[in-house]
Design a binder for these strands. Structure first.
Length: 331
DNA sequence: AAATCGGGCAACCGCGCGCAG
DNA sequence: CCTGCGCGCGGTTGCCCGATT
């Protein structure tokens, strides 16, 4: 039953690769391509040199070494300013989906991008007063947290007693309102984990006072989650795309209300809730997931990114420039 | 000159998904 | 249909090296 083991793990070498091992791996991939990594250790080396023994590496390790270091056309020089800007932009939109981000950076690997982010860019953003996780001003975050502590919502706590948000070091509840404040970000970010979350259907479609709406969303943040199961179908398949496109419209009415790309998030949810299947919570919730997944398939995240990058409005309406300041994350 | 510290990066680990058997 | 491996991914670790004391 099942496939045979990929390698003898007790007889596998770990640690840094030697030049000889690199040569074996390169020679193998140049003649056989990069498929079937599990067979690489057995065949690499043996075919190159009749005296040499096979490559004593796990296929997984071979793949990693090749994709991160040996692959042709890899860039080994420093990241350019344009690449930095693009990484920050894409991270704001996609979160830590490094492979997707790296796809937009020719010659860079996900490991490259991830390391660069962790060692350089996240620090840079902090120095500029930007939270590298939410991509929002740290001052705003502190204000939001303080506001939440002062203004707990009795209504929301009673309504959401059946659901408690997961508490973990990675996502403490106190940070949730910050995500939720920025509906586009929240939806885009949580989409990647396939968490179905209803966007604020009760939020005014076009509030006069953005700050009021901000507060409204903070106070009722748990309402979003409490109604997950009842997040009714008919979800606009364009929503995730639209969310992403609206990322840097912070401060604009569009971002504050969730009206992005000509659609209002509130409208989307309300439309679904008023549909005929409004009571079929579980079924519609799965339909919601299906809609999102279908959207992913149909659109393709790459296409989404391409469209976003092609849209000058994404850069804060600055006329298509891509410098840090124009994008809104710079100092 | 030696010791310590911190940053950068390559590599490993563990998980989820898809698919072969 | 079930089991378990291959693959890809994100998170984490540990080593190396330069800067500082």
């Amino acid at each position: 039953m099942g496939r045979p083991p990929c390698c003898d793990k007790a007889n596998v070498k770990k640690g840094p690769w030697t030049a000889e091992e690199d040569a074996k791996l390169l020679a193998y991939t140049s003649t056989h391509g990069t498929g079937n990594w599990t067979s690489v250790p057995q065949r690499a080396g043996r075919e190159i040199n009749s005296i040499s023994c096979r490559l004593k590496r796990c296929g997984k390790s071979c793949r990693l070494r090749y994709t991160n270091y040996l692959r042709p056309n890899l860039k080994h020089e420093n990241f350019t300013q344009e690449e930095e800007d693009l990484i920050v932009t894409l991270h704001a939109m996609l979160g830590s989906r490094w492979s997707l981000i790296a796809n937009q950076l020719p010659g860079r690997t996900d490991n490259d991008v991830k390391n660069y982010w962790n060692t350089k860019l996240s620090k840079k953003l902090r120095q500029r007063g930007i939270d590298p996780i939410t991509h929002r001003p740290i001052a705003d975050l502190m204000h939001s947290i303080g506001t939440l502590a002062i203004r707990p919502s009795p209504a929301s706590s009673s309504n959401s007693s059946s659901y408690l948000p997961p508490t973990s070091a990675a996502s403490p509840p106190a940070t949730l309102p910050v995500f939720l404040h920025d509906a586009p970000y929240f939806t885009a970010h949580h989409h990647q984990h396939q968490v179905v979350t209803k966007v604020d259907a009760d939020a005014p479609a076009s509030p006069v006072d953005e700050k009021q709406n901000h507060l409204h969303q903070q106070i009722n943040w748990s309402d979003f989650l409490a109604d997950d199961a009842a997040a009714h179908g008919a979800v606009d398949a364009q929503a995730p795309q639209a969310n992403a496109l609206g990322m840097y419209q912070e401060g604009s009415v569009a971002a504050a209300t969730g009206v992005v790309g000509g659609r209002a998030f509130g409208d989307v949810v309300v439309d679904g809730a008023s549909g005929g299947d409004a009571d079929d919570g579980a079924g519609d919730a799965s339909a919601f997931i299906d809609a999102i997944l279908d959207c992913d398939k149909e659109m393709g995240v790459d296409q989404l990114i391409a469209e976003m990058l092609a849209d000058p409005a994404y850069y804060g309406g600055g006329g298509g420039g891509s410098s840090s300041s124009e994008m809104g994350w710079g100092c």
